[in-house]
């Protein structure tokens, strides 16, 4: 159930700490590099605390090629990926890989004109490389919000992938971007989730799991 006052609990930018044994779980809507959440985690780590996620895990999750290499190593199906500085086979999903890249932004390109425009944008005019993931013509994109690895409405197949992704990256709140081809799913990227984008059932899961962690 959504409780009275819950709106405030998950206000934009709020960070929630839950202590379980020797671990401090850090719940936030954005774990990106140099955010308030990231620095809260780094500060705890330097004090010798064990955080979930660790600062290293947040970087691994949001830098797409690293995310996919790590996930693949853990047996999670991922899209093939390559790094390029201009050319890209079509259709494909594109991500920036540089300091100014927004981890939540991806582009699906299916024609050369769109690809050229997107590449120019995400490479900052050719200054940086980018990551592309070739997909099939019939491939669709399926973003799924995972809350401590749990999902509100995903199928069993996707739900078990989200659980596995949580086991590997340990981000309490994350958008899993899957490429779906028929009944096959492959991870494309992990991106931040805004509290405001959570459906009611997802907020319920978040509240419930946080209470469980609170009571250990």
């Amino acid at each position: 159930m959504v409780r009275k006052g819950q709106q405030d609990t998950f206000s934009a930018g709020s960070i929630h700490l839950r202590h379980m044994g020797r671990e401090t779980h850090v719940i936030s809507e954005d774990y990106s590099f140099k955010t308030e959440t990231y620095y809260r985690i780094v500060s705890l780590e330097v004090e010798g605390k064990t955080t979930v996620p660790s600062s290293c895990e947040t970087l691994e999750a949001y830098v797409v090629p690293i995310c996919l290499a790590r996930a693949e190593g853990a047996g999670i199906p991922v899209l093939p990926w390559e790094i390029s500085d201009h050319q890209v086979p079509l259709p494909a999903i594109l991500y920036g890989v540089h300091y100014f890249a927004d981890p939540s932004e991806y582009s699906v390109v299916r024609d050369p004109e769109t690809a050229a425009r997107v590449v120019r944008f995400i490479t900052n005019g050719g200054k940086y490389p980018f990551c592309y993931q070739p997909i099939g013509e019939e491939t669709g994109i399926l973003p799924v919000t995972a809350i401590f690895g749990k999902t509100a409405q995903a199928t069993d197949a996707v739900g078990s992938l989200c659980a596995e992704i949580y086991r590997v990256f340990r981000l309490p709140l994350v958008n899993c971007i899957f490429a779906q081809t028929g009944d096959r799913f492959a991870l494309s990227a992990l991106t931040p989730v805004r509290y405001s984008s959570l459906a009611r059932e997802e907020r319920d899961i978040l509240t419930r799991v946080m209470e469980e962690k609170c009571h250990g």
Partner: peptide
């Protein structure tokens, strides 16, 4: 080097 740059990807792949 920067955690958001391709150099970090290279470093991580080496460690992996």
């Amino acid at each position: 080097t920067d955690p958001l740059h391709i150099s970090y990807v290279a470093a991580k792949l080496a460690v992996f």
